[in-house]
Each structure stands twice: as C-alpha cells, then as structure tokens.
Amino acid sequence: MLEVALRHRLGAFALEAEFTAPAGVTVLFGPSGSGKSSILAAVAGLLRPAEGRVALAGAPLTDMAAGLFLPPERRRCATVFQEGRLFPHLSVESNLRYGLRRAPRGAEGPGFAEVVALLGLEGLLGRRPARLSGGEKQRVALGRALLARPRLLLLDEPLAALDAPRRQEVLPFLEALRDRAGLPMLYVTHAIEEADRLADTLVLLEGGRVLAHGPLAALTARTDLPLLAARRDAGVVLPCRVAAQDRAAGLTLLDFPGGRLSISWRDAPVGAALRLRVRARDVAVALPGGALAGTLPSTLSLGNALPATLRAVEALGEAECFLRLAVGESLLLARVTREAVARLRLRPGQELLALVSAVSAGQG
C-alpha cells in the first residue's frame, strides 16, 4: 500500500493531499493544475514537500517531521514521462538493457525476454528511437522502467503526447502490464478513458486537494462529485466478461453482476474481461408491463431492457435528475428530465426497466 499525506506551496498554488492507494493501479485524475504531477514528483523524491509523509508497504520514503527524505535513487520508483526520454544513440535493445543494469542486485522482477514479449517489442530491438512511432517509444520506455525492477511504477500522463490512434495502440499494453506484472502503479491523467480502462483506485483532485478517493466503480456511481457527474459522459463503469459474439449482427454479449448487455461489436475472445462505461444520458427508463415486459419491441433501436429498482431520484440543475437504478448487484445512472419524473410518477422503491442502447455503451 502507498500512503501519501502532503502539504506544500508552489507560488500561489497550495497542495494539500492525503490518500492511500492499495495494490494495483491508482489513477490521479483531475484538470490541469490540480496537483497531480506535483504529487507524483513528491512520491518519486523529485519534490521535497514542506510537510508530509510518503510510505510504501509501510516503509517511509518521506517523513518531514522526522527529517527523513530518501533521494530518488534509493526509492526504487521508476518514472515514465509524456516523452519516452530514450537514449537516441542506442538501439531499443540497448535502451532496455540500460534499465536492467540499473536494477538492484538480487531484486526480483520480470526478465528481458518476458518484458519484450509483454510489450510486443520483438520486432523493434534493432531500431534506434528515431525510427520508432510515438506509441512504440512509450512501449520501450515502459519496458526500460520495468527492467529496472522498481517497487513502484510512476506514470506521468504517458499518453498525453500521442494522437488518438497511438493512444489506442498503447492502452492494451498498459492493461496487460496491470494484469500480469503485479507491480503497483501511480498513474497521472486528465483523460477519463484512461482512468476507466486502467484504474483500480481513483483519486479525484481539484485545486491541490483530494475531492474523493476509492474504487473506480464506486466513485463513478456517485452523483455528488461534479468533476465526474457534471460531465456529458458521466456514468458508471461496469466490470464485464464477454459471454458470446454475434459477428453477423455486429454485437457482443457481456455478462455483468446483475445481468447481460448486448453492445456493438468488440474484438475480444469469449471469457475476456472488459470494463464498460454506461453513460447516464444513454439510459432511459420505462414502467414495466405490456410490450416492454422482458423484451424490446422491434420498432425500438435500443438493445437492452434490464429489470431495475429505482433507489433514488437526485436533482441535477433546474431541469434534470439522476435516477439511481439497482440492476442486480450493480448500479446504473439514468439522466432524465424532471418532467419525465413527474409524468411517470417515479419514486424510490419502484420497479422499472432500464433501457440501454447497444451502441451507446463504450468500452472503458
């Protein structure tokens, strides 16, 4: 577990952040200037805070009250920045082996061949960085960091300098790294897609302060956090598993804790784990009974009708509301007008159907 409690001032900017990060990927999420990179620098030992403590697995890295501040080279934290910062005169293989040479003697971690295979670098080993795409450079930078066998991997907006296709190229490798390397990671981003796909724990930051922190699914289901709820893509993230593929119809069937969803085609094998963001504005509700009892009529373009229980109606500005819908063990949010709430006479405890478009649900 990573423990962070920091107080620091940089000119007019005041950082006052405290959170704990269990094993897995902890994403620091917030707008530019919210303090994300400052926290990362303090954990890495590149920023000496005025006050505070940083500890990893119970061992203090920084304890300003006790006068303890380990230098960066003694922290065993490897950092990947927006630009790969590779050595231009060395081949990919030599850049990777540089990381291996920096590993402490006797430190456990993945071997060279394992890292090359994990990040798909087999065909790049003989190239120089000038002959790599932006996505390839970041994969090499990740490999070099892994081979240094750190105790903690720090990633400071590693995809921010890449265009959309290159980001999509690198994200699956980051997911594989999360799932297979077993290395705790602290990841900085202001892109919600990256948080959806990678985070186990989410830390929301604004103005140098922590607004909330906790499991990703729990925070995306909260409506009291404007940093998430005020977005047009506000919605919950569901953990899912591919149940079946219907290539002819262009649909993928996903099981989640509460039922089954059909979504537009995702190229993934049956049994694969996926995260799905179901946006509140793409969920409608209907009163049960008649044609909507169990299946949707063919005259509707919506693809899913899920039995749901209305848990709460929460005001959203002057004209809209969030509906909190329990679907089995899971929670969905629906964004509807106040007029619809009044017309359908919606009230907590009511049994409804949650209508979700097969197209609108996007992979996290």
Rank of each mutant, 00 (worst) to 15 (best):
P288S: 05
G109A: 06
E169K: 00
R9H: 03
E194D: 09
G259S: 02
R128Q: 13
A14T: 15
L47A: 06
E122Y: 01
P110L: 12
E108R: 15
F322V: 00
G303M: 10
R101T: 08
L46F: 15
E193I: 12
V237I: 15
F322P: 02
R241V: 11
G259E: 05
A107M: 14
A191F: 11
T337S: 15
K137C: 07
R151Y: 04
L274K: 03
V270E: 14
R275C: 03
S133N: 14
F19Y: 05
V356E: 02
E114K: 01
Q168L: 10
G258E: 01
H213I: 00
A212L: 04
R167P: 02
L86M: 11
L353I: 13
A41G: 14
T337D: 08
R222C: 07
L47Y: 04
D233E: 12
R127E: 12
R178N: 07
G349D: 05
A160E: 12
G271R: 08
M185T: 15
G109R: 03
P257H: 00
G126L: 04
V27G: 01
G106H: 12
A141E: 09
L204R: 14
P49K: 15
R7L: 04
L202A: 02
P72Y: 10
E314N: 03
G235I: 08
H89K: 02
L2Y: 04
D267A: 13
R128H: 13
G106R: 11
A361H: 03
A342V: 06
G52Y: 04
A148E: 04
G289I: 01
A59G: 11
V356N: 01
D63M: 02
L125G: 12
V188Q: 11
F87S: 12
H8Y: 00
A326R: 06
V25D: 03
E114A: 11
A145S: 10
A305N: 10
A145K: 14
R241I: 06
R209W: 09
S360P: 05
P60F: 06
A340W: 01
L296N: 10
A361V: 15
P165I: 06
L216D: 12
L287A: 07
L68D: 06
A280L: 08
L15T: 05
E169Q: 09
R85D: 10
V115M: 03
R9T: 13
R144C: 02
L344N: 14
L121M: 06
L302R: 00
A195C: 09
S301E: 11
A130W: 15
G99I: 08
A293T: 03
A218L: 05
R9S: 07
T252W: 10
R166C: 03
L46Y: 06
L174D: 04
E329Y: 04
R345H: 14
P31E: 00
L152A: 12
L159Y: 13
L28K: 13
S34T: 11
V327G: 02
V170Y: 07
Q82V: 00
G126E: 09
L331A: 06
A312E: 09
D267R: 10
P88S: 10
H89C: 07
V341E: 07
F87G: 08
L205A: 04
K137D: 01
P129V: 05
L346K: 10
L238R: 06
Y98C: 04
F29T: 11
S91P: 07
L90P: 03
L124T: 10
F112D: 01
R281D: 11
T223G: 08
G214V: 13
E73D: 12
G45D: 14
L333H: 14
P348L: 00
